[in-house]
Design a protein around this nucleic acid. Structure first.
Lengths: 334, 334
DNA sequence: CCTTCTCACTAAACCGGTTTAGTAAGTCAT
DNA sequence: ATGACTTACTAAACCGGTTTAGTGAGAAGG
């Protein structure tokens, strides 16, 4: 069935399509009342819906933004995306969301696809494997904002949690309850993912700040599927920490699974604290203490920063990364 | 900074842009080897990225699909969307995901926006408030697939859980454990949302099938924020069920919050079963039994059905709704 | 009455890639 | 030598909306 165009509306209303375009864009300054009503009636009668593809071609903008998430399984990612969506929507933009699964090749092909689709800008949780390509895009003055991870050069605005600070809070909380033997559980640091690296660094610094030794065996940083068995081996070795600090929600799930398997009681047998929250942690038998990221604020700011870049076209040579203060949610698990 | 176009590549390579277009589209049948290499080198040298907006205008397709979710807070929604994303991606399509918050006006404006953006089709979890508009789109032969909810006429393919069956399984499980006083917790049915209505209907039928009376006071179907206080009043009344059946994950969260507040022990003091799963339910102190939807299959089929509609352009007068068998995940909470 | 200005509207170029009919050169068969 | 066919390539129209310079009619001022 033939799609209705402005030309059809113009014919129906007895005007030119320029006049219809003026009407669609609410430019009524030089438009007779009779003309206006005829165009309005024609649009309604024909059920005309504008074609934004044609408009985008001429105006060289699409009103869309690409978001490339490194790992969408992290709850905080989806929370940040929700905030980005809300803020973009408030400004008349819509999102393509893509999941790179922490793979640089996937990320690269998403960037290409989104640039080809003429998105007006990108928000990327960078995988850290496309640094040359990021530089090319910088040279091309393509608007990009990074979130959650830092790359080797500060070429785009970068927003992320103060990870070391988050670890400091975690260790502080455990130490405050008298815990001196503190282990850490993380997902793999092979890819050198900023939050994981910085949180482990922060954990070490925090232990040192409490005069506590760093027990390398108590640092479990594995692929998610390996965490359980590593924890088991650690537990069975007899040299056990009193508490565990999980650096993200996926690590926490594996930690809780291990705890349940060994029929440990929180916090009597083992203390637990984690970074990032989930609705169920609050109402677990033992509600789990967490350090939250201000995901809504990060997302909103990321969106605003990008929209600013898009509209101003003012590109700085370098950008200072913006760090967000973590938020302690003290429950009963430590 | 000026964007590189095919014309620029053509000039560089010493060919016409038609030739460049043939190269980009891998049409080499009538192309000299020398020409091919010159075009290839020019593309690489200039860093040319095609403009899909121009291509879409000419070809009248964008390779994008709109997904309008009624309520994105439900975990099953995001699981279905993940499956849709994967399947669409496998077929070279990408998604716009919009959240209607169960509001028909929001849904309507999203449909308009997505049609204007020339998406090739829509997957909608319908709010049930735009039936006339759905019919208009049917008349216009716009490809749409409905998910999770049924509207008053079978004008588009519709995929959803066998909700009554899910409730039957829930009541069967509780009855099997000797529970005869079974309450139900749901989010609000004011909007007549298909799954909620059907699950309550299924619950009543299932009680009847076990010769159990329907205690209207034990049916809590409220706005999410009201559920806790309604449950509290029910509990304090003294006329209490032995177990609760939560019809979705949001209702379950409120139920668990109530249980925790009243220091009840699952399943000793109160049995619990719910529809829809979450990672944490498995490792709760008392792992919660659930009836899962086959979200991956539903999402994949929804995507395939829509892609079929898009490519075949073959629209039936009516469609039979497709029901999916629920899956029991027996844990320890009943 | 003539000139200038304003109002209301329109023709046509443009955005960038696709596609198709057309062109030129070379090959082959008669 | 000529006609038919194939290969390799290209000019230009098209997709649908935007935008701008242009046009005609009417009003106002000198």
């Amino acid at each position: 069935m033939k799609k209705i165009t402005m030309q059809d509306v113009a014919l129906k209303a007895g005007v030119s399509k320029s006049t219809v375009s003026q009407y669609i864009n609410s430019r009524f300054e030089f438009m007779g009342v009779s003309t206006k009503h005829r165009v309005e009636a024609a649009i309604k009668e024909l059920g005309y819906i504008p074609n934004h593809v044609a408009k985008s071609l001429k105006q060289k903008k699409t009103g869309t933004i690409g978001v490339i998430v490194a790992n969408i399984l992290h709850t905080f990612s989806t929370e940040i995306i929700r905030a980005i969506e809300d803020e973009c929507e408030r400004n008349g933009f819509h999102l393509f969301v893509c999941n790179a699964d922490d793979q640089p090749e996937k990320e690269r092909s998403y960037i290409d696809m989104l640039v080809a689709k003429q998105v007006d800008g990108l928000i990327i949780f960078p995988t850290n494997g496309n640094n040359d390509y990021y530089k090319q895009l910088k040279t091309a003055e393509f608007p990009i904002v990074f979130v959650d991870r830092v790359i080797n050069e500060p070429i785009f605005p970068t927003l992320l949690l103060d990870n070391e600070s988050a670890s400091q809070i975690a260790v502080d909380q455990l130490a405050k309850k008298g815990r001196t033997k503190i282990g850490l559980v993380s997902t793999s640091i092979v890819q050198k993912v900023t939050p994981r690296i910085e949180r482990i660094m922060g954990y070490k610094k925090a232990l040192a700040s409490h005069g506590l030794a760093i027990e390398e065996d108590w640092i479990v940083a594995e692929q998610r599927e390996e965490i359980g068995s590593r924890l088991q081996r650690l537990w069975d070795s007899g040299n056990r920490p009193e508490a565990f600090f999980a650096t993200n929600d996926l690590a926490l799930i594996e930690l809780l699974r291990f705890i349940k398997k060994n029929k440990l009681v929180i916090p009597e047998n083992i203390g637990v604290i984690a970074i990032d929250d989930s609705p169920f942690l609050e109402m677990a038998t033992t509600p789990i203490s967490v350090i939250k990221q201000p995901t809504f604020e990060i997302g909103q700011n990321a969106a605003d920063t990008l929209l600013q870049l898009i509209s101003s076209k003012n590109f700085e040579e370098e950008y200072e990364e913006r760090r967000y203060r973590p938020i302690l949610v003290e429950r009963e698990s430590i």
